[in-house]
């Protein structure tokens, strides 16, 4: 039995080392499967919970076009959620189980969505900074070792780059607008910048889940490398439209050809991750409330389907 496990693991690792994709029917170590379920379900939940802060502004979107774009964007996020749930189901877990794990707190979602969307520019900031950070991460995941996850990322990245552009467009328009609009934009920037940097996770020196993830090529690039890439492209975009990055220690490092940034407040990061962010409770309460309110609809649909199946 133990010998079998070793043989399977060796064959698996050999595949990984040759940069071949692992597919749902391939044998894989249990730890690899569980690692992916944790990461992919978290990713799916993040897409779905992320609909809340943006959904908060749908009925107040200030023009027909902006409402259309926002609604289409949130729909994309929901679609990504669906797609990722399906990809995760190939690992032998149902969507229902994943949602239970979300509600029990066993499964997480991106910490960033525990922050509130307070003014219209937040919709710009979420698209530009939050989706912008997500893209950097997801582009890297296009080469992740699990086939269904990698393919989901290819598709998702295409839509995310549209989201980032629409977010930046909102920010750029507001920075061209009235004094109040500029204030809203800068206020949103001030509140979303640091949480966006935290999206890449702890520094490499302090990243608890990275070891096997690199060996199994689930993760291809480190948190700090991805974070730096995000900072370098985003700072210039901010300057271009006149936004100030809220980091007094931010400066260009000529020698390293990248920006040095100030210290990230990991205490805040840990506090929010552990449940004490501004919106943790609301986000989860909202999801549970509407999931429970919809139970009778799902039951009716299932009962009807059963009748149809019996009839045929």
């Amino acid at each position: 039995m133990m010998m079998d496990a070793i043989i399977i693991e060796n064959a698996f690792q050999e595949k990984i080392d040759r940069d071949l994709c692992i597919e749902p029917k391939d044998q894989m170590p249990e730890k690899y499967r569980l690692h992916l379920i944790r990461q992919m379900s978290q990713h799916a939940h993040s897409e779905v919970i992320g609909m809340q802060p943006e959904g908060n502004w749908i009925t107040r979107a200030p023009s027909l076009r902006s409402k259309q774009i926002l609604l289409a964007k949130i729909q994309d996020e929901g679609g990504h959620g669906l797609y990722l749930y399906s990809a995760t189901e190939t690992l032998g877990i149902s969507r229902e189980e994943m949602i239970e794990q979300l509600h029990s707190g066993k499964a997480k979602y991106a910490n960033i969505f525990n922050y509130p969307s307070l003014n219209w520019a937040d919709i710009g900031a979420i698209g530009w900074l939050v989706d912008g950070a997500a893209i950097v991460n997801q582009v890297s995941l296009q080469r992740t070792s699990y086939g269904p996850y990698a393919r989901a990322m290819v598709r998702i990245c295409k839509e995310e780059s549209f989201h980032q552009r629409q977010g930046y467009e909102i920010m750029a328009n507001m920075m061209k607008g009235s004094t109040e609009q500029k204030e809203m934009a800068q206020d949103a920037m001030n509140r979303w910048w640091w949480p966006a940097l935290m999206m890449f996770g702890p520094h490499d020196s302090d990243s608890p889940n990275s070891g096997n993830a690199f060996i199994w090529k689930i993760k291809r690039q480190s948190n700090d490398v991805l974070r730096q890439r995000f900072i370098d492209k985003t700072v210039q975009q901010a300057e271009l439209i006149g936004l100030t990055v809220p980091d007094k220690d931010l400066k260009w490092n000529e020698e390293k050809q990248c920006y040095d940034h100030g210290a990230i407040d990991w205490e805040e990061f840990n506090r929010v991750i552990n449940g004490n962010g501004p919106c943790n409770k609301q986000r989860m309460d909202h999801h549970i409330k509407y999931h429970n309110e919809g139970a009778w609809v799902r039951e009716a649909a299932a009962a009807y389907q059963k009748q149809i199946n019996e009839f045929n």
Partner: peptide, 13 residues
């Protein structure tokens, strides 16, 4: 549009 994030199942949302 008020149904956004409030659907009984993601597909219906």
């Amino acid at each position: 549009s008020e149904w956004c994030s409030r659907g009984p199942i993601l597909e219906e949302d």
